[in-house]
Nucleic acid binder design. Structure first.
Lengths: 245, 245
DNA sequence: CGACTTTTTGACCTAATTCAACTAATGTGG
DNA sequence: CCACATTAGTTGAATTAGGTCAAAAAGTCG
């Protein structure tokens, strides 16, 4: 799965073989990180750029009263902090949610990309715009949808994103998060996440078990959630679930 | 107020006199736009870059069920869509909320900035990072805070942002939005916004009247809302309320 | 003034929270 | 491999924050 991020960039821009090889060669130091470890913490002065190779991580922030909001899931192929390096001080934290393999790149690599690889630079640009669009969609999600719709919408999004990096088998993909973490992303209590999941399961819309999400009928779930993938700006028809193997 | 945006950029980076003059000369066509007009609509292929000179505008999107979520307020000095031009298709809309004066710049101007004015380019970069951080804070706000805290937090943020462009008088500033629009930004019903405002007013924390927000004791409101302005990444101590005149 | 929009209030309802207990997993050291 | 500890998931009962519906009051504007 080391090349999930090449795959991801390719879903936004046409890359040359040279670009691809060059990207491949970028990956220097790789760390295995256990779950619930902060990669960067609020207040830190960011030094490295992190790229998730395997596992799930998340951006988050805590309120003064100790409540946590998760802002984004970072899945294989996602850069954690390309841009943030421009600011002196991290305004949020990033933590692993499952065991992760993380590549650490030096900021100079990124600068090299922007200066020497226009196609790649553009692809990175687009990535960050998509991240922002995704963030907007999450705000829409917690601001305007019911508990069940929120969860269903999140799962639809994740299915599309996981498929784009070749990590789905039909309607199913790995999802190693706890219901508590789901609650922190949807703005719901654990208890209510549990009850909502039960209802979704009983309606035959989604099942979450063995650290996997199983969607028997993706179209049906999309309809239920009011999911429109336009905001993910994937180009062309996404690869079909099975063709990714 | 034509130079609110110069002021804004200066709160992120040191600009030379030349930069300032050049920025001033940028403003070409200026439109007066009445309230509730879309500047760009979801699905459009963005052509112009809009800069708000006066008034309030907002990014927003509707759900399939006709609910609206507002993602950001655009106040004098804010660029609406510097970056979005990179994508083929708008994934959200931008509308005026009050009468606005809007400068329309050609995308080529932006390209010129990035190529010829490194200090400005950097300042624009930082602006968009701050926009993203603000969006995260809004998600935290609707996901984790109570109705009153949400509203109070939003007002604190707005106070800081308005002050940064010289549009406050002590704890007071123009705020020409309806309670319905406040509801669409905080994920609350109009009725509940109204009741929450009443409680905040009775607690002596904020008053909203005559299209203005009046905060008798800014520090007290910040404490109540759990507001920490770090995410706005303003450099140095902000100008004091009265020194802006 | 009269039409329309926005704000305010009341009464009632419901989605989601909280607290608490219990069960099912997962993990750890002997 | 088992006994015990710990974390995660499930369920029930009581409570509450916030939503809905409806109608009145207060502004706004041609």
């Amino acid at each position: 799965m080391e090349n999930a991020f090449i795959r991801k960039l390719e879903s936004f821009a046409q890359l040359s073989d040279e670009d691809r090889q060059w990207l491949q060669s970028l990956i220097g130091r790789v760390n295995d990180v256990s779950p619930d470890q902060d990669l960067i913490r609020e207040g830190d002065n960011p030094e490295n750029v992190h790229l998730i190779l395997e596992g799930f991580a998340a951006r988050y922030k805590m309120t003064a009263n100790g409540k946590r909001q998760i802002f984004a899931y970072l899945i294989p192929g996602d850069f954690c902090d390309v841009h943030v390096a421009l600011l002196r001080r991290m305004d949020h934290s990033i933590a692993t949610l499952s065991p992760c393999r993380v590549a650490m790149l030096s900021p100079s690599t990124i600068i090299e990309i922007t200066e020497r690889r226009p196609a790649l630079a553009r692809a990175l640009w687009v990535c960050s715009l998509v991240d922002e669009a995704t963030l907007r969609e999450w705000l829409l999600n917690v601001g305007q949808r019911s508990a069940r719709e929120r969860i269903a919408h999140l799962f639809c999004e994740l299915h599309v994103r996981m498929r784009a990096v070749g990590l789905t088998t039909d309607g199913s993909f790995e999802f190693p998060l706890t219901q508590e973490e789901l609650g922190d992303t949807t703005g719901l209590s654990v208890v209510h996440v549990n009850r909502s999941l039960k209802q979704l399961r009983e309606a035959g819309l989604v099942t979450m078990r063995n650290e996997r999400i199983i969607i028997p009928d993706v179209e049906r779930l999309k309809t239920f959630a009011g999911f429109d993938p336009a905001y993910l700006h994937l180009r062309g028809p996404a690869p079909t679930a099975t063709s990714t193997f």
